[in-house]
Amino acid sequence: MDPATVPAPSGLLLAASVAMLAAALWLLLPKSSDTLASRRLGILLGALALVGFAATGRSLGSVGENGVFLTVSAVALVSGLATVVTRSPVYAAIWFAMALAGVAGVLLTLGAQFLGVATIVVYAGAILVMFLFVLMLAQPSGMAPYDRVTNEPMLAASAGAVLLGLLSMSIGRLSAIEPPACCRMPSRADAIASGSAAPVSPEAGDEVARLGAELFGRHLFSVEVAGILLLVALVGAIAVVSRGEAAAESGREAA
């Protein structure tokens, strides 16, 4: 499948998609004049924008492949949109978990099995739970006022949509901006092309094993540094908590 054979989407479609996405975001973001109709219109426009952006993509050949990819990416994007626009932070967190599932699906589709699973385990299993703990600790009863209004929704939605449009345009023209050979990092693909490295075997288990070998071989030092970083973050968080509590209490006493 040569990308050059697939016709690039027209600029008009892209512009329409950007405008619809901006409008959808603006309509869906929490604000005082929310009505059910405006939310529905927002959902409709968002769906249309999703379709528009999907049209800038490429066909993957078989219907099955297309279907799987479209499904997981739609789950990821729709859940992401819902994370952003949902008023209740708890629901937002749950939508985020959904988005993570979609992302994991995309990663699996791409053939990164380890990362797909790790995302679920680390993010949904650890980080997100931590968020929920904090929410339970800190969330006041009822809907907080700051969850019901947003900051500069029009401008932010436009900026985000325009940025997405620009990125889509660039991605669509990807074949035109392949970097010249001199500026490319020597990659395994080049090595394979030049015959100096064996082609990667497609077996799944092999993929994970190779990633592990890469991590603990070439990138061992970085892994150790990342481990130390984790330790430092842990110690730092504990230190801040204990000191902050003391300060808060003394502040309360002084008050």
Partner: peptide, 9 residues
């Protein structure tokens, strides 16, 4: 942050 994003844009 918005100002920064506008700059990036």
């Amino acid at each position: 942050a918005l100002a920064g994003v506008v700059g990036v844009l």
